[in-house]
Amino acid sequence: MLKQITVTVNGAQHTAEVEPRLLLVHLIREVLNLTGTHIGCDTSSCGACTILLDGKSVKSCTMLAVQANGKSITTIEGMIQDGQLHPLQEGFKENHALHCGFCTPGMIMRASELLANNPNPTEEEIRWGISGNLCRCTGYNNIVKAIEYAGAKMRGEETASTEPQFV
């Protein structure tokens, strides 16, 4: 009944015996103990469980662990490199793009694919690009700002002021 699978997660190879019905998000959270990936719904609507699978953003509650066999996964825990925050992580902090933090890992993982495909997105492209990820706290203004900030930083440009703007 159990199936053996091998996945590479944040650069490290893991082999596990899993039930065929085990959801990928449960493999990540409960077998590998990487709890930065969250679960916010049961209908693939909220995006809190978003990870990168071979570079593509995927809602990990919508896939079985066995479907990830042989593939490479990046979770929020793998975004920091050599002690340096990823520009998106920095952008979220600098622009106050998170309140409770629960949607943040999924939002960052989704945004990382968005920027990989479109390094200089417009505001509208960002808004549509993250529309599979729900945030209940921030009202999204600052998430858009954070992704713009990260995009600029990754393009090697000056990043705009992160101070709040008032009318």
């Binding site: 959270r29 409960e30 103990n33 990487l34 709890t35 930065g36 990936t37 969250h38 679960i39 979770t75 929020i76 825990e77 975004m79 920091i80 925050l85 992580q89 979220f92 902090k93 600098e94 106050h96 998170l98 409770c100 933090g101 629960f102 943040t104 890992p105 960052i108 101070e163 709040p164």
Partner: peptide
Amino acid sequence: HSMKRKEDARFIQGKGHYVDDIK
């Protein structure tokens, strides 16, 4: 003063500690 949030360090790195993370 718009001090950046102290709590963010853990949340942006996936190190928040929510109830379902308890084992």
